[in-house]
Design a protein around this nucleic acid. Structure first.
Lengths: 244, 244
DNA sequence: CATACACAGTGTATGTCGTACGCAGATGAT
DNA sequence: ATCATCTGCGTACGACATACACTGTGTATG
């Protein structure tokens, strides 16, 4: 039999959470789940998610491929550990009574993580990852909204909205802003122009022609702008709550 | 040499867009990119995205694996064709002057597509897919917002917000609502309870205990509710525009 | 009408990957 | 001192995506 398993959490997650039912016999592990996650993150950062393989991670660490399976059940499990490392601890809290700047900081930090680790947007997610750090981010968000009159359900909805906006925004900007080299000839914008028949998509054509989506500032303004809409939506929820 | 290629669009995309530089010699193709996309969609719907392989799609159609490569450049290319089929044509337009109900319908239809094809949320997306139907959806959204005073940039931001909210909502609900069987013992909720220390995550614990996230109606109410916040955010943008 | 060419579908082969299985040595509990 | 148990490793297997070369086919060209 093999410790660490209660068949509910994969091994990597159990290690992340410190739920370790290992017996205290045998050699001590030479690695930690954090070492492995960090090494994998480094590879994904530098060479992209497609270049990430179990063997590459293992080689980087100076171990064999199979040794990793003492720490994670599967590659999916490894990816969860990567997410945990990539996000790190949630941003420091803000003033107790003002949810707005707090939430803005939360979103900015979230965005920063996505910009630093673009591969995060490429990992297929069936369900929200249940890792310590990501759970911490969620807790932090709820804390930011604690001073409001929102119900728990509404707080979660608000955070979902904010989180999901950040992801979408970064993804969209990534398609347009990334290495300008690709833009000119073979980039996304070029392909778009190739297929965009103004007769068939009049509004989209005018939008493109108007220069929308051609931010050169990395989409910072655009981000803050859309974020205002998100916060306005949350504001409306709060107003409704207070009013009736 | 081989027609259909201008090295800008992958072959599957070129076929979808009807940009076909094929010579008019040789046997006619027995399949269409739509046949292939539809077959792949059926497999993903029934057996999940993980079970999708080139050979399985080909077998379903009664052809060999390699024959598919006459229609798509790669599996990624196939996935784009799948998305195009899965979304289909955008929903019918609404009244010219009222963007709100129009956009609501747009979001509902979007949600319906995601619920019908849950695998969509699992496909890794680096950039917004540039297929005819998806472009049509975007155009339709811009049309809905045409009567507003928003700038083109703002319209796109608004649609991004709406789109991205729908995705996030469906994904979150999927993690909780799917086959209740899994919920009881080994489901997401169970794993969450396993790791959620109320001392470490007080707000999250109370939120969970409050019964949030325990919709049994498939999250319909929850969806409409959050959507209200999104629309309120867009409303705010419009008001700002009008005011100043 | 004859011919040649481009293209469709196929068969084979290759390299990569995830991962199941079992072993040898190390370590600490008994 | 003994032995259960764990670590890291070597081997092996099965999928899978996909490159390449071949065969037959139907159309356009002479």
């Amino acid at each position: 039999m093999d410790g660490t398993q209660d068949d509910l959490l994969p091994r990597g997650m159990a290690l992340l959470w410190g739920i370790d039912e290992r017996q205290r016999r045998g050699p001590r592990p030479a690695l930690t789940i954090h070492d492995i996650g960090a090494a994998a993150v480094r590879i994904a950062d530098e060479e992209g998610l497609a270049a990430l393989s179990m063997s590459k991670v293992a080689t980087t660490l100076g171990f064999t491929t199979m040794s990793l399976y003492r720490y994670v059940d599967s590659k999916d499990d490894l990816v969860l550990a990567m997410l945990n490392e990539a996000y790190g601890a949630p941003p420091a809290g803000g003033p107790r009574t003002q949810w707005r700047p707090w939430l803005i900081r939360w979103c900015e930090a979230n965005r920063a993580a996505l910009v630093r680790h673009p591969w995060i947007l490429q990992i297929p997610m069936g369900e929200p990852p249940l890792t310590p750090n990501l759970t911490g981010w969620l807790e932090e968000g709820l804390t930011a909204l604690h001073s409001t009159e929102l119900s728990e359900q509404e707080k979660l909805s608000s955070l979902l909205l904010a989180e999901v906006y950040v992801r979408g925004q970064v993804q969209l900007m990534g398609a347009f802003d990334t290495p300008a080299a690709k833009q000119g000839e073979f980039g996304y914008a070029a392909r778009m122009r190739r297929v965009l028949d103004p007769d068939r998509f009049p509004h989209l054509a005018t939008a493109l022609a108007s220069g929308a989506l051609e931010d050169d500032d990395g989409g910072e303004d655009e981000f803050r702008f859309g974020l205002e809409a998100v916060l306005a939506g949350i504001d409306r929820l709060i107003e409704k709550r207070v009013a009736g």
